[in-house]
Each structure stands twice: as structure tokens, then as C-alpha cells.
Amino acid sequence: MQDRIRIILAKLGLDGHDRGIKVVARILRDAGMEVIYLGLRQTTAGIVTAALEEDADAVGLSMHNAGHLTLAPAMVKALREADLNIPVIIGGIIPDEDRERLTEAGVAAVLGPGASAEEVVQAVRQAVARQSDGGAS
């Protein structure tokens, strides 16, 4: 596995709630990761481009607008179409019952409200490790 995880964080679509993602950015940075925060109103295409340019290990999205069932799978699909086999992790207001559908759509981890800093860091590390293993096998 690579030494330092590089993760892209972004708000996909129109949702402007950025408290959570900014806190997560600092948590991941404090945990030694390299965080590239793209900001608000990003598109899947823009995130794919950034992931390629930045040679990112993972993409983290924050969703508070109940659009996750459409947007998160669209993100996974866009990455795969660009031959980027990196994990997508999402956080925000995500009902438990949606987790299965998101996992089926290829989302690597789902972090709900109240996830602790350790849980966030662990989820990213594990998702990156799993994907690297999966890629090697």
C-alpha cells in the first residue's frame, strides 16, 4: 500500500451543507492524509478529472439533500468508466436502510451522522486498503 493516502473531498450537485465535509477534511488531514477539497457544486466529470490529475486514492462525498441514491451511484459509475478503481465513501444524512443499495451500487463505505473521528479515518483507510487488495487479485 502507498505511504500517504490522497483523498478528494467534494460536494456533488447543488447541496450547500458544508459543515460536515469541512470538519471531515480537517480530521483526515490531522490523521496524516493529503486532502484535496474541491468545494461546492461539483460534477461527477469534474471530480473524475481531479481524481486523475491528483492521482487520488479515494473520493469522499458529503450528502445532506436526500439525493444520495442517485448521485453516489453516478459517481461510482463515472469513476469506473474512466478506469479509476478507487473507492467512493459517502457521509451525511443517509438512512440506514439505504446502505445496502449504496453498497450494491459500489459505494465503499457510508458514514452516518454521529460517526466519530476514528470511524471516519478507519473507514477511509480500510476502503483504500480493500480496493488496493482487490485491484491486485
Binding site: 450537485g13 447543488l14 447541496d15 445532506h64 439533500n65 436526500a66 439525493g67 441514491l69 442517485t70 448521485l71 453516478a74
Partner: peptide
Amino acid sequence: DMPTLMGRDSDSPWSLGEVGRA
């Protein structure tokens, strides 16, 4: 909903997945 708040119509590409949600 978010598209309305952002001045987008429901048929805008930006609105995908967000129409009538929040």
C-alpha cells in the same frame, strides 16, 4: 427543493436526483 433554492429548473442537468427531495 435544492434546485429551486439554487435557481435551477427540474429539467436542468444540475437537478438530477434532487427534484422534490429536500
